[in-house]
Amino acid sequence: MSLERSNSKELTPATPARLAVVIPCYNAAPWLERTINSVLAQIRPDTSDVDILIILADDGSTDDSVAVASGFGERVQILTGPNRGACHARNAGLAAAEQEGIDYIVFLDADDYYEGDPLISARRLATERKADMILSNMHMEYKDGTRKKRYRYSGQVEPETFFDGWTRGDVVNPAGILWRTDFVRGIGAWDESLARAQDREISLRAMFSRPLIWKNESGAGIYTRVNPNSITMNQSFPALESRYRTTRSMVERARGTSFAPSIPLLCREIYYVARAAFRTGETALGREALAFARNEGYRDHPGTLAHRLATSVLGLEWKIRLWKGH
């Protein structure tokens, strides 16, 4: 069932929606100036119908991140606090945006940035379509400066299409999703217990509330792979456990619904978690994850031909033990 929208404001081009960009930040000083400037660059005389509030939610940084943000003066609202994780920082930013009466919100990681005017065009499209979520293009950028351009989805996007696409790798990172503020609050906001898979969890969980989703084709978010503090790089037990727990939850919620066709792909992700767990010595987690996938009927061994052959004979755990983690 869709969330009730009785409390939503009726927005028209004559009464433009306000937009908040929440930047959760932990030790991102080398990239933060570029990130903030990419938002400020979209505030011009020809975009005066847009009211953008930038909120930096610092998560206990020990570098110069707060000083960098302070250099922008009143153009950036700064929240500070102890290190409690990116999801806590995002939720703190969300609460601050709600206090300001913000209608739409974007969560922009402190090392990512924008090109063009995706915020402006996404906000305008959200007002026009009365959408719960607007997706924008997201391109990958690597340490050597190379890029992988990614254009995913178009027009109105059904929740099942987005759900299935995400499980196939058509991911839209946080900078590429504009949320209606009361919608993201209504689904429970960000799960602060997670060490990893945070954007996957909230994005897929949102689909069960059947949001109205449209795709914005103007501008792009740039998702960078340059920050050693990035959650994506984390292979610790809490990170692997978070990946497993969130994916298992999606399998359990998808059973018997229109999202059920995506269960095999979710189980493939759980298989990858099991494989990573065995490699890092987290045997109990690996066994639990693999058993769950097998109980769901997943029998594949995704990987190279050598991996498939060896694992089909030895089993995943013993193959990794004997092949020294490969």
Rank of each mutant, 00 (worst) to 15 (best):
L285E: 09
R75C: 00
R245Q: 15
A122F: 03
S262T: 12
T224A: 10
T161V: 13
N91S: 02
F259G: 00
L125G: 04
I134L: 02
D117M: 13
S70G: 14
S249N: 12
P45Q: 11
T15Q: 12
Q99K: 14
S209L: 05
W318L: 12
P24S: 07
E317Q: 12
A89H: 00
A291T: 10
G101Q: 07
I54L: 06
P13H: 05
A89W: 00
F292S: 03
A95E: 15
R180P: 00
E282D: 11
W190S: 05
V66H: 04
A17S: 14
Q99V: 01
H139C: 03
R124K: 09
I222M: 12
F208R: 03
L178Y: 01
V157C: 07
D103E: 15
G325V: 01
E74A: 13
I36N: 01
D132K: 00
W190L: 07
S6D: 12
I54Q: 03
T181M: 10
I52Y: 04
G169F: 09
L3I: 02
A14T: 11
I43C: 13
N37T: 06
G188H: 09
A96T: 10
W190G: 00
R180F: 03
D49Q: 06
D64T: 08
A97Q: 06
E269D: 12
K319S: 14
R84V: 08
A293M: 05
